[in-house]
Design a protein around this nucleic acid. Sequence first.
DNA 1: GACCTGCTGCGGGCTG
Length: 820
Amino acid sequence: MAKSRGHIIVEQWFKSKNWKWAAFQKEASAAYLNGKSGLINAPTGSGKTYSLWIPILIRHINALPEKPLKTRKGLQVLWITPLRALSKDLLRNMETACLEMNLSWEVGIRTGDTATKERTRQKKQMPDALIITPESLHLLFSQKNSSEVFKNLHTVVVDEWHELMGSKRGVQTELALARLRNINPELQTWGISATIGNLNEAMQVLLGMKFKEENAVIIKADTNKKILVESILPEKVETLPWSGYMGIRLADKVVQIVNQSNTTLIFTNTRAQSEIWYRTIIEKYPEFAGIMALHHASLDREIRDWVEEALHNEKLKVVICTSSLDLGVDFRPVDTVIQVGSPKSIARFVQRAGRSGHRPGVTSKIYFCPANALELIEAVSLREGVVNNVLEDRPPVVHAFDVLAQWMITLAVGEGFDEQQLFEEVSDAYGYQYINRQEWEWLLGYITTGSPSLTVYDEYKKVERIDGRYVVKSRRIALRHVLSMGTIVSDTTLRVKFQHGKYLGAVEESFVTKLKPGDVFFFAGMSVEFVRIHEMTVTVKKAEGKKGFLVSWAGSRMALSSQLSSFIRERLASSIENPTHEKELAKLKPLLELQQERSIIPQTSELLIEQCETREGYHIFIFPFEGRLVHEGMSILLAYRLSRLKPITFSLAMNDYGFELLSDQYVDMKEIMKETALFSTEHLVDDIYHSVNATEMAKRKFREIASIAGLMFQGYPGQHIKTKQIQASSSLLFTVMSKYEDSNLLVNQAYQEVLTYQLEEIRMRKALDRIATQKIIIRKTIKPTPFSFPIMVDRLREQLTSEKLEDRIQKMLKQYSNAD
DNA sequence: GACCTGCTGCGGGCTG
């Protein structure tokens, strides 16, 4: 490739910093300077920011006239980041590079944190480059002069694109990009992404449907990042429980590793789990006070900032965290990462491993601490995934009409739009490539009249059509819209603070309603006593030494990824017949032998069904090993199909490995399997819609959709509306819209989201297809097996409180040992 | 030989 002048300057800059001028940086610079767009796939800490930022500056310098222009050109570069927290670091880096290149470029930040003064300044004169979140970018489009603001924009960079793409925030970004390309067809768009399974698709989503292929490139960093995976093993497999997800039994071993390391991050799957680990370690090893910290999303921002800072300055030995530290600033001191419990996907595991050895060429090491015995299989599977570099896809969100409705109103609040033009523009976005006129007309109706069933209510008439343009005239409507933009919908939370005023974090309404004054709970790594609740704030005081219950949050459970599940199926199948030398499997051997003895371990060509009878009734266990969401869908499907043969009701339970149908009647699976296609994919969707309370599931989903689409105003800042009220009004809207309209796009979307995300329809179909080719093995067991026991416990847990659960498990224990 | 489940992320006018 011929070296351009710009290319040489970039190269010199890298050399002057004594940095290795890596192949991907060369490639990216050259492609950018040649006017291309694309995607850069490089690990964090590899200098990928500079591989774009420096060429951008060069391009600017080259374009400078001899005499500098008197008037500034305004905004030329947008740098989109999913995390506010990343913006300050970026700003520093970018400004430093400007200084080094002797260029008086101004770089600014525009996020929710940006002060009013700075906003006003930006309104008068935008900086040359702006670091921004997708939400703030949408807010810029709600201003009257937005096309003027973006007139001279020539480059947009989307950082951590893999992180945005799979969510509705990604769709927001797609829509904004489509608009920016419309304003300036020459716009160069670059994405920066970690490695995911569908990189090509990621680029397509970023660049939109009309992008010319010859102008796009994917640039992969050829960094052989080494990742070492080591399991933390118990002396005996008996140490590990059959079921359970906390993993604290191996706390001593974990502490040993922490002690041998400089700085350790311990990743847990839930906030409650991180609190348990903190409490367990501090009780057993009081010397960790002061050098151990907690980090999760419900802790106060100030505390989290302190933890991040202390981690950076090597003041902390260990931090116990959740996904809250998956991304974010470089923590160079971290040399060890421990994952407690299944990470559920290989990509997440790799991402977390990368938090250690955060420099090019340095090996990352991650320890896996299994939380129950069967997770030893996952340990082996994870390692296999890492070695073979198998990573999950991030499927982009499509047909999100709620996000589109919001976007249309945003534009109407801003400069207004011509519907034909906007329709063209929106079809350029990957997520709306198949949108048709009928859907579009419905959306136009929705934003102007509030959909056919709501026409009598004025508050849903938001947008007016004036001289062919769709605009929002009312100040009040504009204000309320701007106050509720974005796609992240959360429950109402209450802030927790000490009497003397220090804020600890936030808990959910549903948790607080259980509390009485004097109750003690464990939160933010300490025991606190509930004092009172006033104006959405929970006041507490220290309760040293007292034991209390643990804060719980209503989140969602992550399901095992299909890539990881398939490794697990294979590992299990070969565990007995072709045992490998993996030490994890050696540990697990006694348990697998017990499974083999009481039932079987299925080969990959087999589907195992276990049936047994206990005092609770007749159990059917089925083990597709497909992750809990698919199992949820399958259990619903099977329960429905069985109930059509004869009237029968089941209670359902599931985990990542299998599911249970429990009834007070015996079902002869062998007979039924002969006659009925229980696992057929035929009428799958119909059966599911008939079977479950699909309406209930859709209703719950609808709450988020209605919020995003602007049907429910969540209140002015500082003034809160209770979750219950929001839930009630969304459920009312759902009922009205379903009843009086045949094809309400938002209601349909709710059903679609239930199928796609809650029940993982596509994956379920694949699994059912696989089952169709498998041999069904039905085993009657006298006692629950290592496979089935955890599912039973799971069901009990949902029905009973924890004390009662303990009693029940004791009873079960007695019952089954008596049978011996 | 069997206990502790529930991730992350953003944003908020106008006027004088």
